[in-house]
Design a binder for these strands. Sequence first.
RNA 1: GUGGGUAUAGCUCAGUUGGUUAGAGCGCCAGAUUGUGGCUCUGGAGGCCGUCGGUUCGACUCCGACUAUCCACCCCA
Length: 420
Amino acid sequence: MKIQGPKGTKDVLPSESYKWQYIEGKIRELCSINGYKEVRTPVFEHTELFQRGVGETTDVVQKEMYTFLDKGGRSITLKPEGTAPVVRTYIENSVYNDIQPTKMYYITPCYRYERPQAGRLREFHQFGIEVFGTQDPYIDAEVISIGMTLFESLGVKALELRINSVGCPKCRKEYNAKLKAFLKPKLDKLCKYCQERYETNPLRILDCKEEKCKENLTDVPFMLDNLCDDCKNHFDGLKKGLEIIGLNYIVDPRIVRGLDYYTKTAFEIVSKDIGSQGTVCGGGRYDGLIEQCGGPSTPGVGFGLGLERLLLTMENQGITIPDTEKMELYIAAIGEKANDKAMDLLFKLRKSGIRAEKDYLNRSIKAQMKYANKINAKYVIVIGDEEIEKGIVNIKDMETGNVIDASLNNIADIIIKIRR
RNA sequence: GUGGGUAUAGCUCAGUUGGUUAGAGCGCCAGAUUGUGGCUCUGGAGGCCGUCGGUUCGACUCCGACUAUCCACCCCA
């Protein structure tokens, strides 16, 4: 019987891991420039953290968590998102006593028990950033810019930045009442899901894709038009911040985030190139979350960005990722004596920092050349009795076919020199 | 959790109204005057036709169940 990987998981094979490394490198570089430091938290947490942090009413907590009892009888959950664990570590380690704001990022696997589809896996990887300790709307703009800049630096095009404000507990309560009053007489004309949403989360009715729902919502009141002064000023500040740094945005009053903790800013970066799960990056502000998790009242803002979705978008846009691990030198050997010499040379060259490879399958010279070509080796040297005797080899440039002479004990210097 | 599609070689897929030796392209391996790659040509390896059961003289082909996978919904990265 053949053992397969669990449903909704995906292997990253050696032939494509360079893509991940490339993207992760870009992320680390970008975060460094912007003053964000990496935080690493466990893959699993006490279930209670997500129940409190993400929200008991959310789908993520109600039906999508990988939860189990460990051998000590504790309820453990594989992290379904990145924010709550970072909040936990911020509180647990009293990071709020350090100089503020705290700017952090993470690259982590996340787990959600769902039916897989295009751009959705049970184990997926998220790049996220969080800023704790400031309410300044300009930091919201900075957070958003990091997502946008990452896409830009990877050559991803045709993304839309959509922003909204979901208000604060104060104005949202009033708005919810207003919304429900508006919807009540139309309730039987809405789709069955929206009729459920009316009770569970009326905000979500706003972004339903059903035509009959859209028709009935033409003059629906939006949260955005019912913000309190504080929230309204904050949203204006965000827009101004985005304009100063030159980021185009679309105000989309229908954006609603599915996690309970969001306040004020909510945004999505959406791709049209990956099927129906178009949100590549989503996030916003969560000013009540840290306090709710047992910390001091501290504002926060951040986003999560799906690396599989990012990769999907790049693939569908035909973006090629450079492979920086190409072999520099292949040493072909003819005969047993030459094979020993090649082994000796190989390890000396590697010590000099040259990416080098030799044959380990006792193949013919022709097969060795083919192999060198296949692995994209930049240079090849062939060692046989003659070369050992004279102490001279040809360094062949596999792209041009040109050869240059080199003394056997001089190869490293020459490669380093022509490497440029 | 709900709905639909698909399951044949490592990969992408053909396979005639059910008929006996299951094919192609790519990839892999080897060779084309024995020490030099890419292009071309030749040959080779590699399939319990997803699993189990049913119909039939006979099933890769028809039917059923199961499993896996893909897409969509709910929701989200």
